[in-house]
Design a protein around this nucleic acid. Structure first.
Lengths: 196, 196
DNA sequence: CCCATTTCTTGCCATATGCTAAGCGCAAGC
DNA sequence: GCTTGCGCTTAGCATATGGCAAGAAATGGG
């Protein structure tokens, strides 16, 4: 396997918490490369999430089965994002959701054990970790707001503006459940959309 | 002003991260009491959130004005919750939302500066802080899921089951915008609900 | 290459929710 | 006591979305 390049991860760390390149390299020292094939699972329901992945290339989604057995997409993850069940990872409880690769993916990952060790050894890592969680929270909150304020069509419009990759690779029904509507409705919305 | 009792805060800390009572007392040493009157603002848009409050008694809500100028309730906060704009507090950016007391409130609060100091001095405080943020994330995620999967009526039902205090003190229009519907719709849902 | 499956679209009708406006009850202030 | 404003309900109609089903189009596996 060709040696993967850590640059995107290092740049991401520096973007979250400004620091020297050398320090950033030190922070990500424990991250290991991984390739995940299309349709492969990164995490399954009932399992404690034990790794934190950073996506270099590819697209993933997380989903759950609701009470009626419907597959509900809870998030999409593409380049420079961390697909994981934060609750499961940090609280060491079984995951309630699945995470699956939509396309072939390449990631850098670190185990829970190594992350805890780095938390203890490097104050910058702690700070990076905290800011990263806060950012996840911010993303989720923004999405919550869009559910409260916007129509399904507006949410769809925002999604294709912000993440073309999802549109091109994820099947319509997964996008629909992510937006909180049915695939039928999304198909109609898309039709109206083309006219404009 | 009568001396407020720190027990509920101490118990909360121990609940989030099990530790001895003495250790817990040490953790919350920097928290100061505060009384907030009905309708008073804890935080306003454009201001950097500088304090983290723990509610001992009372009810608050956070809200924003959307692009059309509508008042949208983003959260309710009651006993043992932390009303704050996490993003503003930890990233030191201006808040996008308001936080206002619905009833007279009593809180224990700590300043950003003191919290940072405690983070550096006490590993347990760091761990408590991280778990606390993760828990906030979990609450938000759960609410996101309810928006994706449940009808407005189911969300209303869940709210009155879990937080009677909101129902009794918050005006219907604020509950409605929190649920993502109009006050008209909520009034109808409530009517249907009584029949059952 | 063919078959089976999945994905997407569309039509029909039902239901949920929004918008506007009217009306009622209640509490605050003059 | 009266007015005013607010909170809540209700009605009529418009729009958005869902449920179901059929069929077309694309995809994948042998």
């Amino acid at each position: 396997m060709a040696q993967m390049n850590k640059d995107s991860l290092i740049q991401f760390v520096q973007h979250v918490l400004p620091m020297s390149g050398g320090k950033a390299e030190q922070l990500v020292e424990k991250f290991e490369p991984r390739k995940i094939g299309r349709n492969e699972y990164l995490l399954k329901e009932g399992v404690v999430c034990n790794e934190s992945h950073f996506i270099v290339e590819g697209l993933m989604r997380s989903f759950i089965y609701d009470l009626e057995g419907r597959d509900v997409t809870t998030a999409f993850y593409s380049r420079a994002m961390f697909p994981s069940d934060l609750l499961s990872f940090f609280k060491r409880v079984p995951s309630k959701e699945y995470i699956q690769a939509i396309t072939d993916c390449e990631t850098w990952y670190i185990s829970y054990k190594d992350m805890q060790a780095s938390f203890h050894e490097m104050p910058e890592f702690r700070e990076f970790g905290r800011l990263n969680i806060i950012n996840q929270y911010g993303i989720l909150k923004q999405r919550m707001l869009s559910m409260l304020q916007e129509t399904a069509e507006q949410r769809y419009s925002a999604l294709i503006d912000s993440n073309q990759e999802v549109l091109q690779n994820a099947p319509l029904k997964h996008i629909a459940s992510y937006l909180g509507i049915t695939d039928t409705s999304l198909s109609r919305i898309r039709k109206d959309f083309i006219k404009k």
